[in-house]
Design a protein around this nucleic acid. Sequence first.
RNA 1: GGAGAGGUGCUAGAGUGGUUGAAUAGGACGGUCUCGAAAACCGUUAUAGGAGCAAUCCUAUCGAGGGUUCGAAUCCCUCCCUCUCCGCCA
Length: 423
Amino acid sequence: MLDTKFIRENTERVLRVAHAKHTNPDIQGLIQCDERRRAIIQQAQDLKARRNSVSEEIARRKKAKQDASDLITEMKTVADTIKRLDDELRSVEEQMEQIALFIPNLTHESVPHGSDASQNVEIRRYDGIQPCECERGFRKDHVTLAKERGIVDFERGAKIAGSGFPLYVGKGAQLERALLNFMLEYHIAHGYTEVFVPFLVNEASMRGTGQLPKFAEDMYACQADALYLIPTAEVSITNIYRDEILHASELPKKLCGYSACFRREAGSYGKDTRGFLRLHQFNKVELVKFAKPQESYAELESLVHDAEAILKALQIPYRVVLLCDGDTGFSSAKTYDIEVWSPAEQKWLEVSSCSNFEDFQARRAQIRYRPEHGAKLEFVHTLNGSGLATPRLMVALLEHYQTESGKIHIPEPLQSYCGFNSI
RNA sequence: GGAGAGGUGCUAGAGUGGUUGAAUAGGACGGUCUCGAAAACCGUUAUAGGAGCAAUCCUAUCGAGGGUUCGAAUCCCUCCCUCUCCGCCA
């Protein structure tokens, strides 16, 4: 959410970015409502000030056993007017919120202009294990490998829940758990505090991080309890400090946490449906930071490096991409994607998306801090990134570490977490 | 699921429908005192919004939202949360 005052004073810029992000909010309507709102407030305030002072006068007269019926009669009509104005104010503010909630965040000046993912900019690339054995001819894709090794049962997963809900079996389940533990331990060792969060959250939390109201269709909802399954741990972790004031001395605050992630993927049916490429439920370790505004972009860079470090440790080829404004998410000011290389798909697959939301989420979720003693409260900047999501990581791992004999070699750093060194 | 108790400022904790943004205590901060510190004493201790160049003034906020009233922290209703007991299940 952007500040109304800011929108009023920077209409052109807000509209330009909104259009770049393929949205078309009614900024003019918002500004008109805002003018009406301020007129109402002024009128209502004057009446309330009068009501307050006359009420005192009534109290004084009653104490002195004098008649106050004339004042009471007058105040009855004043009270009616106030009520009418307050009702109108509420409806105008609701209209404003309905517009404001659909205005995307501004992008940072360093974000390139572009219409879609084809105009993203590759920042750096890491080659990983060289030469990759699968590139030398005996190449199987991750679905074939998973089935041959018996580590994922897609059919039974579909029976239990539906397609997109994989069932990990035996060493597959162990490898999945090892990956999550390996990543968590790594981040904990690098200054992140682990949290284990609720997977179901209320509506206020979903609004806080920007999933609602715009992306309601993308989420699984438990209507009877007004709860939503989280699409990412970002929601739960960022909302830990909703409506709270953080101490400047504890910033930047670095948290990491595992969660299962649930996505309906409405509208993307038939796209990347093979195997692990796009799932309704998957596992992910998330990194979240709460930072001072002046430090948030440096924190974004280090966040990306923390996520990349996992791939380096596993020697999996990847690249880091800076998203152009047209591909940058609704709430984000700047986003880097980390993509691993799938030799079977001959494609880059996104395993992490690291974003600085500046104060966009903090304003929605009311997360603030006091820069120094006596200073005014300010919104913190929130950042997050996957560190990492497992399904596509598993794709890359299986494909890159398959051996001539058809087995999967377990990268050395994972072996102690798995308890075996091949599948 | 049933019965009860409760939600007040940074914290603890008063509060009679009528100058209660809110007693009191603690904490924090500033000052006096001190070589320094402690103690003692004095003072400060919100957030959001509106008007104004500004000093400043005004409005709202006692879990959330409605209602009653000239006037609500205080009365009524709905919801949320916490705690205790019972039941049920891990």
